[in-house]
Write a protein that binds this DNA or RNA. Structure first.
Lengths: 146, 146
DNA sequence: ACCTCCTGTAACTATTATGATTACTGTGAT
DNA sequence: ATCACAGTAATCATAATAGTTACAGGAGGT
């Protein structure tokens, strides 16, 4: 499949809301930054709104962060847009008559869950404020090298 | 896209080689357990062979594990079949003129790498022997409940 | 009231990663 | 020589994703 960039785009969007808070925050403007379509932006915003990470007002270009960025972790964003989608996929269709095929799903699910939890714990440790800070540092580096 | 189950299928295959070592290990027989086609099985075996996890002899149905199962971690298998494919995808096409769009890739790559490393560390802690042991325990449970 | 800009969503299309299939070459054992 | 099988390239089918089109409706200015 095409690899999903929705998680990355959602982080991008939220950082944009903060850094460009003083500009017109239309889905068009945000889409220009992500280089996607306004509809895709509104779709992502819809998921972020349902997860209560932002608030919006229909008809007006005033999306707002629902809480301070240091209180939103990458894991919050991940859950908002990807739900509980597993990082590692179990093959659901195997031969139940076989010792391996009949038990592999439940066994792998456990170990996969452990690995995913480890990754999620790391995501939980990073806040969007960290991302914004890093973005500004990177930008300053670029400016200095010109 | 269709979600990739190659990692799971590769683990399945290796566990099958161990548990059914006394049977005819044709790609057909293994395919019946995974419920896929023999060609897919041979493709996965090809990757496992290149990663030196198994040895095979062309023309004969004698795939062999290249080392004891407790010396093969899930991470070894993951690398064998998925390479260094990232778990989280960065959106490569964003507006470089924007503070966010121009720096988000390098920033996210760092944090994503941290999360992936955490997951991989967990995969490295589990060996295929652990998987086989778990499979046999699960099977024993099923047998007991009949 | 009307117009304009915008959001929110549904429906559809295009793209592409994946597994499945087909077809073939070549090896090893009997 | 024949048979069973591995190995692999090429092609097809499926499905997850982003992108697009279309339209209903809100907010605010005139």
């Amino acid at each position: 499949m095409r690899v999903s960039t929705r998680f990355s785009d959602a982080i991008h969007l939220l950082a944009y809301l903060k850094i460009y808070a003083d500009t017109k925050l239309t889905s068009d403007a945000i889409a220009a930054s992500i280089e996607t379509s306004p509809v895709v932006v509104r779709r992502i915003m819809s998921q972020l709104r349902r997860a209560q990470l932002i608030t919006t007002i229909p008809g007006t270009a005033q999306p707002q962060l629902a809480k301070p960025l240091d209180q939103i972790s990458l894991l919050n964003v991940f859950y908002a847009v990807e739900g509980d989608k597993p990082l590692f996929a179990v093959d659901p269709k195997t031969n139940p008559q076989c010792i391996v095929g009949g038990n592999i799903q439940s066994v792998l699910s456990q170990y996969y869950q452990d690995a995913q939890t480890a990754a999620e714990a790391r995501l939980a440790k990073t806040s969007l404020q960290d991302i914004v800070d890093s973005l500004l540092v990177e930008q300053a580096k670029q400016d200095a090298h010109q």
